[in-house]
Simulated scan of single mutants.
Amino acid sequence: MNEYNNPWKVLAEKKIYENPWIKLNEYDVINPSGGKGIYGKVFFKSIATGALPLDEDLNTYLVGQYRFTIDQYSWEIPEGGGKFGVDPVESAQRELLEETGLVAAEWTKIVEMHLSNSVTDEYAVIYLARKLSQHMASPEETEQLIIKKLPFEEAYQMVERGEITDSMSVAAILKVKMMLLDGRIS
């Protein structure tokens, strides 16, 4: 048997919960060591998209909001969900405009990642947004946002100090820091 083959055996599957954003299934399984058990999996009904805006002076924009799921305030890059079948860059463009009022003329895909592959199938695509122009923001009714424009290096230091913990934001900021250091962007 190839070590990359699926060692899990599903005996039964049951839908536990579903809403417009997620579905939760529970599985009766035989685990890789041969024991019986259960496994829960959250299916996301959208793809996560994010945009790290970076202006010509190497300033970026963070979005601050209180996150219900973690019961704390969070500083993040502009991000949100996009429909499957829609180019993720279109969803990232929409989120950037909605949350910050920014429009970018240049988009570069910088990260593709699974967000918590131990319990979900959530997948993210993150872009670097350049050549920015300011327009009117229009956050969703569930969003009470504060927008912070700051030097990119300050956002990087926030990651280093553990002040930014959102996984998409951390990944994007660290990737852009590497790109700046090795001269891929300036």
Score class of each variant (00 low, 15 high):
4 Y>C: 03
10 V>P: 01
11 L>P: 05
13 E>Y: 02
14 K>I: 08
15 K>W: 00
16 I>V: 14
24 L>G: 00
26 E>K: 12
26 E>S: 13
31 N>M: 05
34 G>M: 01
35 G>N: 13
35 G>H: 13
36 K>Y: 15
36 K>N: 12
40 G>D: 02
41 K>S: 00
43 F>Y: 08
50 G>I: 02
52 L>D: 04
53 P>S: 11
54 L>H: 09
55 D>T: 12
57 D>T: 11
59 N>H: 14
59 N>I: 04
60 T>M: 07
64 G>A: 05
75 W>V: 03
85 G>M: 11
85 G>K: 07
91 S>G: 13
95 E>H: 14
95 E>I: 10
96 L>Q: 07
97 L>Y: 11
102 L>G: 08
103 V>Q: 11
105 A>N: 15
105 A>S: 15
107 W>S: 10
109 K>H: 08
110 I>C: 10
112 E>H: 08
115 L>I: 15
119 V>G: 02
121 D>W: 06
124 A>R: 05
125 V>N: 02
125 V>P: 02
136 M>V: 14
137 A>T: 02
138 S>N: 13
138 S>G: 09
139 P>S: 07
139 P>I: 06
145 L>N: 10
146 I>Y: 06
147 I>S: 02
155 A>H: 10
156 Y>S: 00
157 Q>R: 12
158 M>R: 10
159 V>A: 05
161 R>V: 06
162 G>D: 01
162 G>L: 00
163 E>R: 11
166 D>Q: 14
167 S>L: 14
169 S>A: 13
180 L>C: 09
181 L>D: 15
185 I>C: 11
186 S>D: 08
